[in-house]
Design a protein around this nucleic acid. Structure first.
Lengths: 194, 194
DNA sequence: AAATTTAAGGAACAAATGTTTGCTTTTTTC
DNA sequence: GAAAAAAGCAAACATTTGTTCCTTAAATTT
């Protein structure tokens, strides 16, 4: 029997290609045909092994229940926040974007539109969208989203002399100093389209 | 019979949620349970209608062969280009990213790492990744990727007096003027993670 | 070269699942 | 309010499909 070492890899690639093309997984018998394997039992074994290796997900006793490891995370864009409403209310979800998870990882991400030019020195421009990780604390130097007067503002965060300093990255603007400020996230990325 | 107008929408949402959570589509009977519908025939009808409306894809006679309309495009990141090699050789593909297609649409996209600070005035920083649409021509003012000395460079494009001007967005740098330059793409977006 | 292990195949089984048909209930129309 | 249309249900049917068991062939070991 030809232990063509790459046979199982061929199955893996076939599954990937099939799912990409069709949006759903191939059946065991379709894999047989696609990879010229004679027995469904063989493919069945391969699929379980691929699942063991962590290359695919597979549910038992369900048809076509094979899926690839997710490489996207779906993230809501939070639009204009209605006054007095909690910022994360689903009513504020303006749209959803599927971001590459090999780029933006972690739980509880959201996106915001950039308004104004207060962070222009680090390349955040009006119309850009920023990717934010939901958290209520921050370290010195982090770019954070803070809630000031019921609206979300993006600044660099410092804690100094017991006060919170929100520092715009714009030489023409001054620091904002507060006794206390509600942090709602840390900026971890930026997306722009031209 | 309660023609709860939203019933079919409920099915649609259930399918979306199920696929997102499991990576594969629900069976007709699972939809029955999830949406409290008594008959598989009802769900069957709904699914066909959703497919007719173009909201889902559905294959006949195949199990769990329902899929959502794609909202991501897979884009290769082109890494360091080997000398003398065509830039788009698959050997240069360093990684793949799934970008949201409601953001970056079109055929033949690729990504590049940003090197240097020649475009710093428009917020392109070292380490950023740019999204590029493959094309060999450009309009005045476009940000383009051009091939100079076998390596890809990003500049603003102008055609002036029959010459091609590649303009860095950096006050400390001068324009590059060429008789002819090979354009390999137009920059349509940017992604950064901090 | 025989014995053992490993990989693949064949065939049948049982479960899961899409689909059809006819009936019932609700809604709409006249 | 009766008739017609639409929507939903129930049950059965027919595939599709995952899974198992056992056999066969190849590779490896002894």
């Amino acid at each position: 029997m030809r232990a063509l070492a790459g046979k199982i890899d061929e199955v893996f690639e076939f599954v990937q290609k099939y799912i990409k093309e069709n949006g759903y997984a191939p059946s065991v018998r379709e894999i047989c045909k696609g990879c010229e394997i004679k027995s469904t039992a063989t493919v069945f074994t391969y699929l379980n092994e691929l699942a063991d290796r962590g290359l695919i997900n597979k549910a038992n006793l369900k048809n076509r229940a094979v899926s690839l490891k997710q490489n996207v995370t779906t993230v809501p864009l939070i639009g204009t926040v209605a006054a007095g409403q909690p910022i994360f209310a689903t009513e504020n979800y303006e749209d959803f974007y599927s971001l590459p998870s090999n780029f933006f990882s972690g739980e509880d991400l959201y996106m915001l539109n950039v308004h104004g030019d207060s962070m222009i020195k680090i390349g955040m421009y009006e119309g850009d969208k920023i990717v934010v990780k939901k958290q209520e604390t921050a370290d010195n130097g982090d770019i954070v989203v803070a809630l000031v007067d019921d609206s979300a503002t993006v600044k660099r965060f410092f804690k100094r002399d017991g006060k919170v300093v929100l520092h715009p990255e714009n030489d023409e603007m001054d620091d904002f100093v507060f006794d206390n400020v509600k942090i709602v996230g840390k900026v971890i990325g930026l997306i722009r389209n031209l």
